[in-house]
Each structure stands twice: as C-alpha cells, then as structure tokens.
Nucleic acid binder design. Sequence first.
DNA 1: TATTAGCACTCCTCTTAGTTGAGTGCTAAC
DNA 2: GTTAGCACTCAACTAAGAGGAGTGCTAATA
Lengths: 342, 342
Amino acid sequence: MLTNRQLQILQVIVDDFIVSAQPVGSRQISKKQGITFSPATIRNEMADLEELGFLEKTHTSSGRVPSEKGYRFYVDHLLSPQGINSKDIQQIQSIFNDRLVEVEHIIRKSANILSELTSYTSILLGPDVQRHRVKRFSIVPLSSDTAVAIIVTNNGHVENRMFNLPPDFTASDLEKMVNILNERLIGVSLEDLHKSLEAEVLAVLQQHVRSADDFIHALVTATMHNSESKIFYGGKTNMFNQPEFHDLNKVRMILDLMETTSQVQSLFHPNESGIHIRIGSENKQLEMENCSVITTTYSIGDDQQGAIAIIGPTRMDYKRVVALLDIMRLDLTQAFMKNRSE
Amino acid sequence: MLTNRQLQILQVIVDDFIVSAQPVGSRQISKKQGITFSPATIRNEMADLEELGFLEKTHTSSGRVPSEKGYRFYVDHLLSPQGINSKDIQQIQSIFNDRLVEVEHIIRKSANILSELTSYTSILLGPDVQRHRVKRFSIVPLSSDTAVAIIVTNNGHVENRMFNLPPDFTASDLEKMVNILNERLIGVSLEDLHKSLEAEVLAVLQQHVRSADDFIHALVTATMHNSESKIFYGGKTNMFNQPEFHDLNKVRMILDLMETTSQVQSLFHPNESGIHIRIGSENKQLEMENCSVITTTYSIGDDQQGAIAIIGPTRMDYKRVVALLDIMRLDLTQAFMKNRSE
DNA sequence: TATTAGCACTCCTCTTAGTTGAGTGCTAAC
DNA sequence: GTTAGCACTCAACTAAGAGGAGTGCTAATA
C-alpha cells in the first residue's frame, strides 16, 4: 500500500513527465505546488517507488521516469476527471452542425477533430456492416454478359459487386432471380447471408433459373470480401511530433501496422463498453510497445456499434484523452440516435 | 555540346550514385569498366561538367553528385531501355491470374506490386467516375422518413447516398420520381448530372411530386462529393528505406501531402499519354523538392483513363521504373480491354 | 523516529583538439 | 592532350576534459 506522500509524488512525476518528456528530479518535484517536504525526502520516497516498480531511471544518476506499472497505477487510481475547455467542446459540436445524414461523413470528421484536439493519431471504426440486415436486392445488367448486384441494408449501407452473366441468361431469368432473392432474404444479416444463400436459396434458384451458381458465388464473395467495417484515420503523422518517435523505425512500424486492416481491428475490444486503456506492452502488438492505446465504443442506432481508438506514446495525456473520448462517445451516440428517430 | 568522354563520365556518375547514394570520386570512376583514362583526366572533365551545371559537390573536397540538370540530361539522353527480369514480369502477370472482374481489385493489387518491385511509393488513380454515364437510378426507402438513392453507371460503378424524405411523401411519389429520373437521365455523365438535374429535371419533378427539392439536393451532393477518382497507394512507408529520407520532416511532409486528395491529384498530368518524369523542383509542390515523380496513364475501356505515379528520391532508378511502368501500363490497358469484350 | 542538509559520486552532454582518409585542384612532366 | 605527383580541404571519427543535473548515503536535527 502506498502512503499518501508516495501517491502525491508519483502523481507529480507522471504529470510532469507527460508534459516535459524529461526525467523528473527531486529538486524539481520539491518546487511543485503542494509539495512541503525536501528533495532528500523525495529522493528516499522515489527510491522506494522505484523498488516497488512504479518508477525507472534512464541511467544511474538521472531523474525518474514512470514505468509501465507506474502509468497503470496512475491511470487506475490517480486520474482525476478533467474538464474540457469550452472551445474544444465547441469544436466537437461543430461535427454535428451540418446536420449530415451520412454516418460516414460524421465519423470521418470526428476522426480529424479528435486527432487535432489530442495531437495524437485517431482511428474510428464505422458500424459493423456484417450486422446490417438486407433491405433490398437488385441487379442491374450492364452489358449482355455482365451485371452488378446491389444489396441495400436496413441502415442505408450499399454493397455492390459486378459479376458475369452466363451466356444464356435472359431478362426474365434476371427478374425471377431478383424476386426470389427479395422474397427469401429480406431481414437476413450480412454475416448470415452466405449461409442462407448456399443453404436455402441456391436450391430454389436452381429450379427456376439457369446457371445460378455464378451469381450466388459473386454475391457470396461480395459480402465476404467487405466483411470488415470501414476504418477512418485522423492525424496519421501526428506521432512525428512526439520526441519518443524521433526514431524512424518505430514510426515506420506503427504506420505499417495502420495499413494492415487485421492489425488495426485487433486494437479494439468489441462488445466491451466504457473506456479501455492499454499501456505499452499491454498491447498485443510488438510494434506498439512504446504506445498507449485508448479505446471506446459508441452506438449507431439499433445494436450497431462503432469504435474509437487514440494512439499516442505511453507518455500520453491520459486525463485529457479520456475526457475527450467520453464527450465524443456520448455525442456520437446521441447524434445517431437523433438521426434515426428524426 | 558534351564530348563522348563527358557523356560517359556523367553516365557512370549517375548510375553509380543511384545505387550507392554516395558522392562519386575520380578514382572510383577510373576503375569502372569501359573507362580507359586516368583519375586526373576524369577530375578535369568533372570540373567542366560541374561548371556546365550537371554535377555538384557536397563540400569542397568531396566527390561529385548529379545536379537536377544532370538527372534531367541523364533521363533525356542517357536512358538506355532496360529489360526487366522474367521473375518480375511474372509477378506483374500474377495480378491478372485471378481473372478478377472488379477494376478496383486489379488496381489495388497493381499498386502493391509496383511498390514492391520498385521499393518506392506507388499511387494509382482509378477511372474517373465523373465520366461514367448513368445506367439506372433507384431509390430504396429505409424508414418513414429516410431513403437511399442509388446511381449505377455504365461501367458498373455504384454511387449512393442517404437523404431525408419529406413528411408527406408517399410510395407513389417515390415511384413517380424514380420513373422521371430514369426517363430523363439515362446516359448523362456524372459530371453533367447536377446541371441536368437542376436545369431539366427539377421543373418536371416539381410538377409531379411534392417537395422534390430535398431529393434533388441530396442527389447533387452525392455526385459532387465523390467527384475525385479513387486513389490507391502502395508502399507508403517505402521511402523510409532511402537514406535521403532519414530526415523526419521530409518524410512527414510527403506523407501529409499524400493524405490530401487535391495535392495527390495535382501530381498527375491527365490527358498526356506516355511516361512523364518530374525531377526535384520540377514538381510544383515544395514538399517534393527532394523527390522525382514518374507518371503514366492507362486506359480502362472506352475513353476511361487511369493513372500511375511512382514517387522516389531524385536518386531514383529511372531506368527500371520507366521499364516497369511501361509494362504495367500495357498490361493494365490490355486487361481492361479483354475484360470489356469478354 | 522521521526529516533534512551536506557531500561524494555517477553519468550524460557539450566542447575542443587531434587524427585519418577520401577526394580535389593545380603544376609540371610525359 | 594526358597523367603523375603533391599540397590542400573537409567530413567523420576518436579522445579527453569541463560542466551540470541528479543520485545515494551519512550524519545532524527536530
């Protein structure tokens, strides 16, 4: 159990290091407001805190730097909620000024504003298209041998894909096919679609329409392929500002990670509400060992969910980011609720 | 006019510097195959070439480095066409193995392979959607007050956008509207669409349908907004490999430029066929003063055009990149022709 | 007993000086 | 016209020393 004084010192060190990025010395701490004891006392306490694993030194005679355990403790126990500047709140509100209908635009704008306000990198996940339900199928023939299949979902998302028509395919075949699809598949979620297509619809189709296989195949790949939710980035190069990322290799690894959809997806914890903080090696990705990732989710009507992540150095301004994410999450959720009931 | 010997020396220097990234000295040149004269002679020639502006020194007693003028001359007069490794050709061909129907997949794959083969950054522009023609309109109502408008183009591209339905809008209104749109606008190109909508269709619509303005507005913004052709990147972080980009600021500026659609668009010269090379400050963007950009175009059926750009340091392997782009351009053009006539 | 002043010690950082080596320009000989 | 020779330049590296921020420990103090 830490004493009050130790808590106080740990807090000062983390707070100071977050803004200065420099090891914090005892003299420096003693000059802080609220600190009533001498540098020597602080040195003793720091030695204890180091022994307990909350602090580290960069070399034998340097000041102290928070360890991952130190950040973790800070985040869990010392994070007093912070108010956000009214100017910043205004900027967030400006996302919703335009009365945009499209989910995508709102999310894109949110990503940019979040990265601007935090000066870190933001990643926003759009709604998980897989859980949308089919609202309407249609097929538009383009030429004698190609056509494009279109699926509209209940949330207004549109998936489409071109496919080849078999040579003996007629307009009436097409019409029959569309009718069958619309009869059978309305309300099926996209994630279940390929099952339904193959199990239920294929047999019926084959009875009424010649060579339906190609079409079913195209439809299956169309819905399989775009399985991931869309990803929006803000401030991709913001990390260049951080002194800990003056190493080209680190930056490169993180940028490369962000180009890999699967890696980005795994930064999030779907189905967990609230705000989550992963510090340094708590992240599963090796590339992220110098980063902290703060994530949260927001809802987009129904049971649809989106997610937000902020990526910064472990020396991140947790207080501010948590506060901003909290506002953002609520505002987005609210905006999409209003949208729906309009 | 340069003497043969000067040409020879300039060529050796550029060729050498392209692979080594180190200033080239007279002794080093004298050891190259085909060089029969002594370092002292070479030094004299180099002094002349420097006076003529083709070479530069990094400091008074360093070897020589090509100037921009030197690269320009090299590119214009010394670029012997290079054969490409059969393994590389095979890799390019692999793009077309899958017999993909979708233009987008082919282009995406091409971007990746180009960046891999060159170890530079590649940017591919997809077809200019603005020149597609309307094939079919449809509107799918989602709820009592929202609907999604869908435009399918002759090339199988699908644009869509949600909009709000006026409160007194009925299903028959919707049907009428769609019919009118399909009667009047089939065959209109997307770039002319908003004109046609406002000039021709709006009046007709207003006669038959209540409060059509909102819808027209949504349709106009839908087609305006996605006006740019899609951009695909390959090897965004490849430039980290180049020693000239060990400076964080340079890399950052270029990465930021690549996030700005308008800036990226202006790298290209639409409507100019063949291969174009911009060296260093020949690029209009200040961020690109250390880069060379090689661009070309390919055709996607009809009069549709796509474009390719490779971005690397001015010390780029022009020979190889030009050869690769040439193959790529032809293969893409051919692939899309085959696709259409299938 | 808890706190603190004092002091020796550590180690990073910055500066200066010296060495090495690759490369040049110029001159004079071939 | 070409080339060998030589003095000179300058970046890059190494070594040594000064300065300074900060620590840990000891002993004095409240």
